[in-house]
Design a protein around this nucleic acid. Structure first.
Lengths: 174, 174
DNA sequence: GGTTAATGTTTTAAGCCTAAAATAGTTTGT
DNA sequence: ACAAACTATTTTAGGCTTAAAACATTAACC
């Protein structure tokens, strides 16, 4: 028989036996995400002198040769529009990106990585990829595949609930 | 046969076919965590007028009748010590917590929830629990159990790597 | 017993993030 | 054509977060 693992000293410490499975899954999920995110943040700063949000923004822009609108970018980064504004402000002043109004719709601004931005990303990207592999390294491939599938379900479940949050909040109107 | 799900417009949008499973699991995990966290944050503010970090801090303190030291609290919240300081500052000025030096070690400060703090948490807690259940609601119990197990493995894997980050960084010492 | 190292906490500086209000351009209905 | 509604983005105000430096107390070591 195995010995029990030591109780975690993080978010999960607040979970008790009588908590529902839901809550315990959530706390554990959050722990994992926070641990990985914190470590990637530290390494990006230490090895390359960039912040995590900076890297995330550049990574999203890198894929899109035609760039992204401000709204699309903030949606992808999962942050508010205002937040994206300040991130892109910095990218532009650094010379890593440009921001140009669309000719057909003057409201829309399209953000594109410059040559300099692309080069910067290419310098960091391989290390980032390696770090993720390291952090997940001892998890078996089959487990990762299962996890991928289960998370897809969970994500779908969340999206559904976000589309129809009415059931508990207000009941049916009279 | 099923139709393919629409491509996500979040973090995962940056993943491509040639990315490793590691990376795709990570992006999906992050998506899930961010979606849930953002929704809980919105509801806490809208329904109870409190912030998510405020709730997290109070939730951790609620369990511990003897309170927590500043270090223990920041470890549990997975934030820096400095961050915990400002959170507790606010709890104390609001009257939701007290901060007292330990008699045996004057360096250590022990934070405890006040009666007012406990009452505030008890008012919010049931709704929070319900929200988590709602967001995960359409995920089957067996899937949640599997997820719980797989995340345990992943978490262990991460912890291992964080303890021994030497393999790639410096090799073995001469 | 006095210096040095270690530990616990706070402060500081800079950047991140949200929610809400404001601005500006576009579409719709008449 | 004009007003109203809608959409895209920025601004503002306030709070969150980190990393590094500073401060204070305790432990370790001659």
């Amino acid at each position: 028989m195995n010995i029990a693992p030591p109780p975690p000293q993080d978010y999960e410490a607040a979970a008790t036996q009588d908590d529902t499975v839901d809550l315990r899954v959530w706390l554990r999920l959050l722990s994992c995400a926070n641990m990985i995110e914190a470590e990637i943040r530290r390494r990006l700063r230490r090895e390359f002198g960039v912040t995590l949000p900076w890297f995330d923004a550049v990574a999203q822009l890198y894929r899109e040769t035609d760039g992204l609108t401000m709204s699309a970018l903030s949606r992808r980064l999962m942050v508010t529009n205002g937040n994206a504004t300040s991130l892109v402000d910095r990218l532009v002043t650094e010379g890593h990106a440009t921001r140009k109004a669309e000719p057909l719709d003057q409201r829309v601004l399209r953000v594109r990585l410059t040559r300099k931005g692309r080069t910067a990303f290419e310098r960091i990207h391989p290390a980032h990829r390696r770090w993720i592999s390291d952090l997940m390294g001892t998890t078996k491939q089959t487990d990762l595949a299962r996890l991928y599938g289960l998370l897809a379900n969970l994500k779908g479940s969340i999206a559904l609930e976000l589309d129809a949050p009415s059931t508990k909040a207000e009941g049916r109107p009279t």
